[in-house]
Design a protein around this nucleic acid. Structure first.
Length: 489
RNA sequence: CGGGGUGUAGCGUAGUCUGGUUAUCGCGUCUGCUUUGGGAGCAGAAGGUCGUCGGUUCGAAUCCGGCCACCCCGACCA
């Protein structure tokens, strides 16, 4: 009983931290604010990457790689962008160290003429580059993605949810028309939505951000918002329509069919290792991680229960028949026949790691021709015939995937409320948390005041939102639709 | 960056208030035997700059100061 997880009812934050560390997803590192992603955590991220990368390719994008360092002068060119990111940039000022009697120091003679910013995002270096790539409408659209690390010097960090350095992908596209760029931004939001819902079993709400929550330099920011088990909102992905802001800042023009020179239209979009945090907080329980089968590095773990080598050999034989069918069907499994832990220990360990299905097989099963099947999401077990087990397992994997989605959706439904007055609004946030659908007058002033007052922010203005006449809960001014307020990560 | 807390073996800890032989216990690790259907048992062993630097003292895990790291709460953000 060495790996005890704090129950989430007792302390949700501690539960999350315990889970990330004890399930072996990540560790704190020797560097302030930076984490080490451990092999098990990275394996999940690699699955996310593989799926997303395939979706990007399928929508016509190509991968490329741009520098980690951005000259300060590039960074300065787009005013809103600077305002948004200046406060959290790591800056490289020197290029050499020097060994002195007092110890290793930064060589004062090796000062860079121009400081380099460690990228917090790559719009500026990329648009500086695109200037050389785009001359004609024939060069458009330009659809590029990069997988990279970025650095944002955060004051307070949490594993996966907010670290000084994190991994992500950032798509950067250039288009001939405004309409085409908007379509692209919305298309990538749909890709993220599909990824969240189909691959993470995590329901999300698509929407747009208010002006104050918008990306620095964007005309419109689209987002997907998910609800965590404590009722707080988590932004799981963003897609931005950048207008011509960066094209103008970096003077990126193209000749259209009429031979006229125009600035191009841009988008950028990204998801990060923050999705790992979302995954943990959407499905897991007090016993450990619960992973959706679509992303689990191992979907099935098989544990033999045996006395002596002879029994193990018999079990091995049966198991190898099962794993052959798994290989053929593309089921990811692990057969753990190691001898240094008891079956009970392994049960607990793989539950902690969130493996969706556990098969246990022992002497009694060999006699009866059965196998014990344990489901991680419901923590139920049953004995089923070995004959046809692969079909049974495949069905169960699908059921788990559907069930996880359904449970998350139910949680969101149960924690979504409408508020018609400010008193009602505050009471809901106080007592129930979750999403509050309320009318808002559309001004940043009102948004700001509500935030100061309640700590809740407007998570998004849902796309395809129901239109209804109403009054702003704060100012009483007329409003045509409800927006989603919540406390957020 | 402000407030609070923590730092003793891989992990969790006792000891700190009231300084004094060889720093406590549990888990884990290693060896051997017995075990194996929900975190196995017995026997033995290894493992420590007490976060770090400095000060006080005959003597510091313990008292004082600086620094560092991490956690929690706030402001800022994906």
């Amino acid at each position: 009983m060495s790996k005890v997880i704090t129950p989430k009812e007792q302390d949700y934050s501690q539960w999350y931290n315990d889970l990330v560390i004890k399930a072996g997803l990540a560790d704190h590192s020797a560097v302030k604010g930076c984490m080490v992603i451990k092999p098990y955590g990275y394996a999940i991220w690699e699955r996310m990457q593989a799926v997303l990368d395939g979706m990007f390719k399928a929508t016509g994008h190509s991968n490329a790689y741009f520098p980690l360092f951005i000259p300060k002068s590039f960074f300065a060119k787009e005013a809103a962008h600077v305002d948004g990111f200046a406060k959290e940039c790591a800056v490289v000022t020197h290029y050499r160290l020097k060994n002195t009697p007092e110890g290793l120091i930064v060589d004062p003679d090796a000062k860079l003429d121009e400081e380099l910013i460690v990228r917090p995002t790559s719009e500026t270096i990329i648009w500086n580059t695109y200037k050389g790539w785009i001359q004609s409408y024939r060069d458009l659209p330009l659809l590029i993605n990069q997988w990279a690390n970025v650095v944002r010097w955060e004051m307070r960090t949490r594993l996966f949810l907010r670290t000084a350095e994190f991994l992500w992908q950032e798509g950067h596209t250039a288009h001939a028309t405004q309409q085409e760029a908007i379509v692209e931004a919305e298309k990538m939001l749909d890709v993220y939505t599909e990824f969240a819902e189909k691959w993470m079993s995590m329901p999300v709400i698509k929407g747009t951000k208010t002006a104050s929550e918008r990306f620095a330099g964007a005309l419109e920011t689209y987002c997907i918002e998910a609800m965590m088990q404590d009722g707080k909102a988590l932004q799981a992905g963003t897609s931005h329509f950048l207008g011509q802001n960066f094209a103008k800042a970096f003077d990126v023009k193209f000749l259209n069919k009429e031979g006229k020179s125009e600035h191009v239209w841009a988008t950028s979009w990204g998801v990060s290792t923050r999705l790992m945090g979302a995954l943990v907080m959407t499905h897991s329980d007090n016993e450990g991680l619960v992973l959706p089968p679509q992303l689990a590095p191992q979907q099935v773990v098989i544990i033999p229960i045996y006395k002596g080598d002879e029994q193990l050999a018999q079990i091995n034989e049966v198991v190898s028949k099962i794993t052959k069918t798994f290989d053929a069907d593309g089921v990811r499994y692990k057969y753990d026949s190691t001898d240094h832990h008891s079956p009970g220990w392994k049960f607990a360990e793989y539950e902690l790691k969130g493996v969706p299905i556990r098969l246990a097989i022992g002497a009694r099963d060999l006699e009866k021709g059965t196998i014990e099947v344990h489901r991680r999401d419901t923590r139920t077990k049953q004995f089923v015939p070995i004959e046809g087990i692969e079909k049974f397992v495949k069905n169960m994997l699908d059921e788990i995937s559907t069930n996880l989605y359904k449970k998350a959706e139910e949680l969101r439904t149960n924690n979504s409320h409408k508020a018609n007055t400010y008193e009602e609004f505050k009471e809901i946030l106080d007592k129930k948390s979750g999403f509050v659908w309320a009318h808002w007058d559309g001004t940043s002033e009102t948004e700001e005041k509500i935030k100061d007052d309640t700590k809740a922010t407007i998570r998004c203005i849902p796309l395809n939102n129901t239109q209804e006449e109403g009054k702003c809960i704060y100012s009483g001014k007329p409003s045509k639709q409800r927006v989603i307020f919540a406390k957020a990560y």
